[in-house]
Design a protein around this nucleic acid. Sequence first.
DNA 1: TTGTATGCGTTATCAT
DNA 2: ATGATAACGCATACAA
Lengths: 336, 336
Amino acid sequence: MVTRERPTLEAVARRAGVSRATVSRVVNGSTSVAASIREAVTRAVDELGYVPNQAARSLVTQRTESIALILPETANRVFSDDLFFPAIIRGAGVELELADKQLVLMMAGSVRSHDRVERYAVAGHVDGVMFASMHGADPLPGTLVRMGIPVICSGRPIGTTEVPYVDVDHFGGVAAGVRHLVAGGRRRIATIAGPQDMVAGIDRLAGYRATLDEAGLAQHVAFGDFTRESGLAAMRTLLADDPALDAVFAASDMMAHGALLALKEAGRRVPADVAVIGFDDFEISRYSDPPLTTVRQPIADMGRTMARQLLGLINGEAGLPDAVVLPTELVVRESA
Amino acid sequence: MVTRERPTLEAVARRAGVSRATVSRVVNGSTSVAASIREAVTRAVDELGYVPNQAARSLVTQRTESIALILPETANRVFSDDLFFPAIIRGAGVELELADKQLVLMMAGSVRSHDRVERYAVAGHVDGVMFASMHGADPLPGTLVRMGIPVICSGRPIGTTEVPYVDVDHFGGVAAGVRHLVAGGRRRIATIAGPQDMVAGIDRLAGYRATLDEAGLAQHVAFGDFTRESGLAAMRTLLADDPALDAVFAASDMMAHGALLALKEAGRRVPADVAVIGFDDFEISRYSDPPLTTVRQPIADMGRTMARQLLGLINGEAGLPDAVVLPTELVVRESA
DNA sequence: TTGTATGCGTTATCAT
DNA sequence: ATGATAACGCATACAA
C-alpha cells in the first residue's frame, strides 16, 4: 500500500501564487490577510486536499494537541466488567473533544509499560498527562511534574504533594452509608474494604472505622480488590466469622454484587436479614436483586474535571486549585 | 509551569565527543558502532536524560508509532454499561502494546467529530486506523483507504469491498441458538433484533429468519438498539402481540437482560414459560437471574485480531486476508 | 566505523 | 499585508 504523496504548504503556495508564509497564515486563521488572497489560498487548499503535517507543526510549536490518559493497570483489569475506567474515559473524552484535543490511551500495568509511558510522555508526544487510579506511591506523576509536564491525577496521590488531583469525598460517602445502616437499627455492621494500596480503598475503610467508632459499634473487616469475585469471597469469610451480622458495607458496587451472591448462597434475605450497601452506583446496580443501595460517586464528572483542570494547566491559567473534591451521595434503593 | 529545556541529539553528541549521526545510530540500535563509542554515547544519553523528540523523528521517518481506534459513537454511548467497546479496546490494547505502538482513541459520534477524525488521520498523526463498529454505509474507511492509509474494520463494512475487516460468525451463532430453542420444544420463538443499520444487527436477524424458515415456524420480530432499556421495551411489545410466545432470541446480552426484566414484570417464569437467549456472553450474564444462555462472541479476540492485521498491513506484509471471521459458540446456562 | 551535509514541512522573525 | 529565511530535532545518503 503506497502512501500517496501528500501536498505540502509549498505546493499550495505555488498553486495560489503566494508564499508559504501566507498560506500558513490562512491555514492558521490569521486576520492579516487580504480577502482576495485568502480566498485564492482556500481554493488551492481544497483543490489539493491539503492537510497540515502535524509532525512538522509540532516540531516548531512544541505542541501536539493530544493528551495522555494513563491507566496503571493491565488492559485485562482495566476493562473487566468494572465500569470505573470506561466512565473516566467517557468523561475525559467529551471534555477533550470540546477542546479539540486527542485522547491517547495508555495502559501501564507492567513495569515495562510503565517505562514506556514515561518515555512517551517525556518524548513530547503529548501536551499533558492524566493518571486514572494509582496504586501505592507511584513516582511517575511526580517525575513528570518535575520535568515540567502538566499532570493531573484522579484520586489523591499517595506520598506526594506536588501533583494536583481530582477526587471524590470517599469518607463522607461511606459515613452517610454507614449512618443509614445504624439508623436502620443495624448493629453488627461489617465492611468489605478495597485494596489498601489505593486511596479509594484506604479512605473508604477509614470512613467505615470512624463512623462505627462514633456509633460505638464493633468493626468487622474483610478485604477485596473491588471485583465481584473478591466481594463474593470476602462475604463468605465475613459470614463464617460472624453468622449473626446484619449489615455489610462494600467499598465498591461490584463487591456488593458479589456479597449479594454469597448472601443468597447462604440463604440470607436482603435486606431482611442482612442489609447491603455498595459504592459507585453503576447503572447495573439498579437491576440487581434486590436493587442496590449505594453511594454514588460522579465518575464521569471526575473524568471531565480532570480534563478541564489539565487543559487549564496546559494553558498556564492562574489560580487553579491543587485539589478538587467532588461530592458523593447516598442512593437508597432496596438492599438497605 | 515552564517546560525545562530538553537535551537534543546535538547536546548528547557534544558531551560524548562524537557526531550527531553517531548518536543517532546508537539510539536507534545500529550495529555498526564501535563498542567504546557506543558506551560513551550511552552514558551521555543517561547523564543528560536524553529522549528523542518524536515530532522530529516522525517528520523524517514518516512514522508516528501510533494507531487510531475510531469508535463511531458518542462517548456516552461507547461507555454505557455495554461492554462491547471496552472489550475491543482491551484486545487491541494488549496487541498494540506488544508491538510498542500507542493507542489513540477517537470517538466520532457527531458529524463534526467525524470530520475531525478524518483530518487527524490524513494529517499523518497515526500509522493506521481501526474502526470499531460502524453504522450504515460510512464512507470514511473507504476514503482513508484511497488515501493510502492502512485501515481495518471490526464488522463487515456495508457498501464497500475495499476495506479489510474482522468479524464474527453472527449467522452461525444465531442459528445455533435458535436451533437449541427448537430442539427444546419451543414453537413460538420471537426475536429482539438489533439496529438494522449495523451489520451485527442485520446478520443476526438474518440468522433468526433463516433458521425459523428451516424449522417451518412463524417469525415474531421486535427491534432494539442493543441496550437493556430497548430490550425491556421490545419484550413488552412482543408479549403484548403474542402472549403465548415461549422463547425469545435477543441479539445482544444487554437486550436479553432487559427481556428478563420484562418477563419477570409480566410474571413469566424463565425458562419454564419463556426461554431466553442472548448474544455476546458478557461476564455479567453468568450472574443474571437466571444465568443467561447466550452466544459467545470473542470480542477481545476481535480487537487483538484487528490490531494484528493492521500491523501487518502497515508493515506491508503480503498475503494478508481481506476478511477474518471468528467463530461464535453457544453457551448453555439456565435461561434456555 | 565515523563524520558531513541535506532535507523533512511547519511556524515565526524580520524585512519590505 | 506579504515574502524571505531561519530555526525546530532528527535520520540518512554519501564521503572519508
